[in-house]
Design a protein around this nucleic acid. Structure first.
Lengths: 112, 112
DNA sequence: CAGAATCCTACGAGATACTG
DNA sequence: CAGTATCTCGTAGGATTCTG
């Protein structure tokens, strides 16, 4: 359970969707355009997963053409805050981590 | 970059390793035993990744038999705090999420 | 427009065997 | 003990096609 939540935060598409929805509701193709590089399939699956977990709501307006809006729930927003905190940590320590990676890679290039 | 950090937190083995190392240094096979269900390969890869990012240190004692200790760095501990915060969130909202999932699944079982 | 269904492929990850 | 190397298989995920 805890694990599946952590997996959500580690999932690229979920994070991007939640980030965009933080600015307000979006329609399916708006999301698709703003994310760019996501397949219809993955976007659908991601949205289903988020909806299933109660992180976003899916509102269908039965018109022609049909219209579907996705929006963050309160739960979704509270998770987003934590994701942002983590992203903040990543940004703060970005140079440290990059330095560590570089040093590691050089150490291992030398041993080859 | 931010994404790769989020992926770390979403990675099952990385989280488990970091959690165990929070209690103090461990040797390779100690980790393997305590985690249980991880293959040598995945544990090795996970540790390499964590080491590369500067989250754990790898200390080799050249004896026979060889001895290798893994330990969290300060950076690793600071990340672990965030992971714990997130896990706390997951635990707090566990029932909400499970309820959402159950409702969602029932809603979709009905439509079949 | 929003999505379901299908096909196809690359990669993640387990099992096993070998080594310093 | 602490790995590396290889083989194999399942599945995540992209491209494409079809529909209410």
């Amino acid at each position: 359970m805890v694990n599946s939540v952590l997996a959500r935060v580690g999932d690229k598409w979920s994070v991007l969707v939640v980030t965009i929805l933080a600015d307000g509701p979006r329609r399916f193709n708006e999301l698709k355009r703003q994310i760019g590089g996501v397949s219809q399939r993955m976007l659908t699956l991601t949205l289903r997963g988020l909806e299933r977990d109660g992180l976003v709501t899916r509102t269908v307006t039965p018109s022609i053409p049909p219209r579907v809006d996705y929006e963050l729930t309160d739960l979704g927003r509270s998770l987003q805050r934590h994701a942002i905190a983590l992203a903040g940590w990543a940004i703060e320590n970005q140079s440290v981590i990059e330095g560590a990676r570089k040093a590691f890679d050089e150490r291992h290039a030398a041993s080859s």
